[in-house]
């Protein structure tokens, strides 16, 4: 009894420290980093335009800006929301600055949490996700640099079949991630909660909701969460991962 009390007091202290100072600092540094990276990203454009004189009429820039906005606005608005429940804040700040959120940050976070049996909502899950995503940033940058510097040489020495095999990294990654979920929740729960995605994909393919085709994944995530929430409310807030 006393031991239980100590454990729950410790747990409360950890949660308070995590939601307090720790998270506050994450947002201060995360937001500041975004501002710094945005300025640094536009700097080469400003340098080449104003200092080097590589100029094109402003209407060319505006045309490009309009075209990109029309194509990407849906992604801009929806994508970060879809990864937040999986990654949490610190990993999101790192992921959106270093890129490759879906292909690298999410798989690393999932493998680690699966290994330790943790969820993204608890401090332990968040700490281990942050460690994993930070390491993935280093490793990914090292590999990217090697590919950029020695890429042509690597292609010349690797057999064509190996190069072709690289095109199957993504489908193989999907299979492994599904396996992590199945090992945690079981086949039935995984299949049951995949039904909304299957229906949405079928509706996209048949053109029934073809206008959403560019936002297929975001729609699938949004609808699946919504169904989960409706069931959670219908069961008086008692629905768990089942």
């Amino acid at each position: 009894m006393t031991q239980e009390k100590i454990v729950s007091t410790d747990q409360r202290e950890i949660e308070e420290a995590f939601t307090g100072d720790y998270t506050k600092k994450v947002h201060i540094v995360g937001r500041l980093s975004i501002v710094i990276v945005l300025v640094l990203s536009f700097l080469p454009v400003l340098y080449m335009y104003f200092i080097k004189g590589y100029q094109m009429p402003i209407d060319k820039y505006l045309n490009v800006a309009f075209a990109i906005t029309a194509l990407c606005i849906g992604f801009w608005l929806t994508e970060p929301f879809t990864w937040f429940p999986i990654l949490g804040s610190a990993a999101m700040y790192m992921g959106y600055i270093a890129g490759n959120v879906k292909n690298i940050r999410v798989p690393v976070a999932r493998q680690l949490r699966s290994k330790y049996g943790l969820s993204a909502a608890e401090p332990k899950g968040q700490i281990i996700t942050t460690v994993g995503v930070a390491i993935s940033v280093y490793v990914n940058l090292i590999i990217l640099t090697v590919i950029v510097v020695f890429g042509s040489f690597l292609v010349s020495v690797l057999p064509p079949i190996v190069i072709e095999a690289f095109t199957y990294v993504i489908p193989s990654l999907i299979g492994a991630l599904l396996a992590f979920r199945i090992s945690e929740s079981g086949w039935i729960v995984t299949l049951k909660w995949s039904v909304p995605a299957i229906i949405i994909f079928a509706l996209m393919k048949t053109g029934t909701i073809g206008f959403l085709v560019d936002f297929g994944m975001s729609t699938s995530i949004g609808i699946t969460i919504l169904i989960g929430y409706i069931i959670y409310r219908m069961q008086g807030g008692k629905a768990k991962e089942q």
């Binding site: 879906k102 999907i174 994944m217």
Partner: peptide, 25 residues
């Protein structure tokens, strides 16, 4: 009885299910 654990799982399977079908087909 928080919705958060269910939120994480539904978000993940909404993503994984669609991504698997998109690539698998």
């Amino acid at each position: 009885n928080s919705f958060i654990p269910l939120l994480g799982m539904t978000a993940e399977l909404g993503m994984m299910g669609y991504w698997a079908l998109e690539n698998g087909t």
